[in-house]
Amino acid sequence: MGAVNPFRTWRTLGGGAKLAVYTRLSLDAMVVFFGLYVVVVVMFVDTDVTPPVWLSTVDIVASLLLIAVGVAVLEFRPEFSTAPRRAVPWLLPAATVLGASCWLAGILLTLSGNDEVSAGGAPLVVMSLFVVPLAVLPWLPYHWPVAAAATVVTALVLGGNWWMALFIPFFLMTTLLSAWTVSVARQLDRARITESALQVSEERLRFAQELHDTVGQRLAAMSVKTELARALAARGDDRLDAELADLQSLTRTTVAEMHDVVEGYRTADLATELRSARDLLTSAGVACTVEGDPATVGEPLDEVAAWLVREAATNVIRHSEATRVRITLAPDMVAVANDGVVRDIGRLSGLAGIRRRAEPAGASLVAERDGDRFTVTLTGAS
């Protein structure tokens, strides 16, 4: 399936995929335009020397074949595809043979010495100059040496029109630069996704490290105390009661420390979450604007609003192609809006959890989508 599949809309594509589609269709349009230009000239433009009918027919058929093959090659190139496509291994060799045959036949006909035959060979040469460097030559091994040799030979054959041979390196560079640009855009998309995943992984590692540092040592001590208590119990040692009391105290301390770690992770401060969200979004290349003062939000909405900001920033990174986020703070109201919504949002379980947190405080949470814009608004009890 390709990017032009009618069941996939333009909005579902990322930035790199959109550039790939735009580039491929632009190259397709150039191939079709130049090919049809040659056909129109052969069929409708009167010249001083008219080639034989059979040769004009050959020019038209060859031009149409080159158009079809050139477009097919571009359509199946992985450089411009947005999804895996079935490989057609014979397509590029067939296009190469057809393009080389048209170019060589055009050169030989132009050198025939017969004015009518030479006039019929010129369209084949021109067609080859336009289509082959755009659609075929860039994907061949040693394309630059081949282009240099073809440019020199074509310039010598065309004589006074030698400058037309420069279309070969020009169009070759056009396609190669286009493919390179699409590749860079895709790498940037992958880097953004990877960075977002790293942000989540870092937060998980931070929590795991904090839990390990705080609770891990206590659990190890509890294990040692338990082994010692078992040994004392087996010997009927009077120190068993003291060890069990120590173990009980250690257990209570561990539970309290674990509770503190979890509560520290679960509680949220609005001002802190605003800074974290801005840092996260900025690192992912998303412009974040905060309007208003977090102090104006007030209780009991403050903590729920902090959770909303945290969840919204995570959703922007994970579920959108946003370039801008605006966080608006007002008394009894917090709204987070972002652009770049390129696919169906579906059910966001994180927002459902925040809605449950908001209900005891008499607050309401509303999520709205307008085109590529998504807005979540938390409103306190009036």
Rank of each mutant, 00 (worst) to 15 (best):
L156F: 15
E195V: 12
V146A: 10
T254I: 04
T253W: 09
L140C: 08
M222T: 03
L240H: 06
V146W: 14
D238T: 03
S223C: 02
R235E: 02
A185I: 00
L176S: 09
H212Q: 05
T154L: 11
G159E: 08
M173C: 10
P138E: 05
S201A: 09
N161L: 13
A234I: 00
L211T: 08
L205V: 09
W180V: 15
L158R: 09
A220G: 08
L198E: 11
E210D: 12
R190I: 14
H143Y: 07
A242I: 06
T251P: 06
L219E: 01
T154D: 12
N161M: 12
A147I: 07
Q199K: 09
I168L: 09
L247V: 00
N161H: 13
V184W: 02
R186F: 04
A185P: 10
V152W: 15
D241Y: 05
A221D: 02
F207R: 09
V184L: 09
R230I: 06
R190V: 13
A165M: 08
V146E: 13
R218Q: 04
N161C: 13
A150N: 14
A185Q: 02
L247R: 01
I193Y: 15
V215Q: 02
V182M: 03
L188N: 06
M173Y: 11
L232Y: 01
D246N: 04
T175C: 10
D241C: 04
A197P: 12
T154N: 13
E243W: 00
A234M: 05
I168E: 14
P145V: 07
I168W: 05
A179D: 10
